[in-house]
């Protein structure tokens, strides 16, 4: 997939752990881990909204398109 997930970058910038983000967003650590590793097939707008609110960032800070990267 050409969509790169920069969740770990934003977590480092906000000095937040995945566990803390999971509690704030209401998504399990396992699912956030799947998202972080780039294994997710889709992200709901509601989840993206909750993550952006928790990390105080824009969707573009977390999602990036790169046609030179293939995660599969």
């Amino acid at each position: 997939m050409s969509i790169v997930i920069n969740l770990d970058v934003m977590l480092a910038k906000r000095k937040m752990s995945l566990t803390e983000l999971s509690e704030k967003v209401g998504v399990t650590i396992a699912n956030l881990s799947i998202l972080k590793k780039g294994k997710a097939k889709a992200v709901r707008f509601s989840t993206l909204e909750a993550i952006c609110e928790a990390l105080d960032c824009q969707p573009g800070d977390i999602l990036e398109y790169s046609n030179s990267v293939t995660n599969d």
């Binding site: 699912n31 799947i34 998202l35 997710a40 097939k41 889709a42 992200v43």
Partner: peptide, 8 residues
């Protein structure tokens, strides 16, 4: 089902 399970 797989796509749904991997939808966060």
């Amino acid at each position: 089902k797989e796509a749904n399970e991997l939808t966060i």
